[in-house]
Amino acid sequence: MSTFKKGSLVFEFLLLIFLALVIVSVFGYKKDSRLVPLVVAVPTTIICIIVIAGEFFPKLSQIFELDLGRVTEERQKYRFQGPQEHQDRIPWSKIFKLWFWIIGYFVVMLLFGFAVATPLFLLLFLKLYCEARTWVAIVFSLVLFTSIWVMFHLGANIDFFEGVIFKGVLPPL
């Protein structure tokens, strides 16, 4: 089994666990309110089990690979690469690196507020991740931050979060 297949299997098992938890928790609700969640969650769980079984038995999986007309064939003929083919080849390390940059932006926003986090994120991201020249990074981040500030704060009258350090009040989680 390829690394990618293993990854798919792990993800599908996680989905199955999530669905099982949904079914278990639904029984804690009143009869009327659990009806639709059950009507949806039970068939979804069964289908998820078939999907997992399909990872082990490719013939089973192939039944559900629909051949709608000749479109797929035609796409291959013209060698058009859809997003799926491309995504399979990206290593997770690259994805998480970028995702943690975004998480980092959120953490700084939480602590110091939007006005500090945004230009800082833009500057560091452009300089370190995009490897842009320093002056390009500075000009780009200042122009973009000013545009967003004007659009949202002055244009739409939205007060951005000030940051917990600057006494910004966090909504309940």
Binding site: L15, I47, C48, V51, G54, S61, F64, E65, L66
Partner: peptide, 8 residues
């Protein structure tokens, strides 16, 4: 792709 995955 897979119809079942769409349903899930």
């Amino acid at each position: 792709g897979n119809f079942l995955k769409g349903l899930v």
